[in-house]
């Protein structure tokens, strides 16, 4: 295994040659905002919050899937990137019905955290107010599509960790929805093992435990990385 050296925001760092820019930055204590990324499951490169500038590359690169190279010069926090990140979060808030004050995930929500971190005070875009369903047929868990940001973490944990592949995405563009099995109510999805990993993975209050009240939906993401670490590295460390 070879080691590469590169600079991130002017700081010299080293990384194994199979590491991504995001992993390297995290190890070096450099913060890059993310939303669809979830340690333990495969990267997606879809939320575009982790885009970084690399000297000599005309396009912006997603840090979560871009593997490091020797001598790479990475900028993670330029004025342009901050402007784009702000717009991405604004777009997400305008897309569906994100009302923090009545959300179970208030104060435990990654979308909310990113908005505060990036400095969003309001959205400049027109709120779409789509009419979306809430599915509580499962009994223990529910999904509120109004709060879904289509990060597909639920799809990936269910497929890659639980191996059930109950979740998937149907529809296109603004009509895209996460669905259970062949678009049946969650309660009728025969493949669901009710393991609750999707609840842990969901960054917002979209997938929730039934019975949790506002601001109660604390999530334990370490549970997922614990399982992956145990399975892949045979290390049972908390």
């Amino acid at each position: 295994m070879a080691v590469k050296t590169l600079t991130i925001d002017g700081k010299h760092v080293s990384a194994r040659d199979d590491q991504t820019i995001l992993q390297t930055a995290r190890e070096a204590g450099i913060r890059i905002p993310t939303l669809c990324d979830l340690p333990g499951v495969g990267p997606l490169g879809a939320c575009r919050l982790c885009l970084v500038e690399v000297t000599g590359v005309p396009k912006l690169l997603p840090a979560c899937v871009t593997v490091v190279q020797e001598g790479m010069e990475v900028q993670t926090n330029t004025e342009r990137l901050r402007r784009y990140r702000l717009m991405i979060v604004e777009l997400l808030f305008a897309e569906r019905n994100h009302v923090c004050s009545v959300c179970v995930a208030n104060n435990h929500c990654e979308l909310q955290d990113r908005a505060m971190e990036i400095g969003m005070t309001h959205s400049r875009f027109a709120y779409q107010f789509p009419k979306l369903d809430v599915d509580t047929t499962h009994g223990r868990f529910g999904i509120d599509h109004n709060r879904c940001i289509l990060c597909s973490r639920c799809v990936r944990v269910c497929d890659e960790i639980e191996g059930a592949h109950t979740w998937d995405v149907s529809g296109r563009g603004a009509n895209a929805r996460v669905i259970t099995d062949m678009n049946v109510p969650w309660g009728e999805a025969a493949s669901c093992t009710s393991c609750g990993k999707c609840v842990q993975a969901c960054p917002t209050g979209a997938i929730f435990r039934i019975g949790a009240t506002v601001a109660e939906l604390e999530k334990d993401r370490t549970q997922l990385s614990f399982i992956v670490n145990a399975r892949e590295n045979k290390q049972w460390l908390g």
């Binding site: 997606l44 490169g45 879809a46 939320c47 575009r48 717009m87 991405i88 777009l91 997400l92 305008a94 897309e95 940001i149 289509l150 597909s152 995405v169 529809g171 296109r172 563009g173 603004a174 009509n175 895209a176």
Partner: peptide, 8 residues
């Protein structure tokens, strides 16, 4: 609908 900039 996969990435936010294009979808929204």
């Amino acid at each position: 609908g996969k990435c936010v900039p294009c979808r929204a």
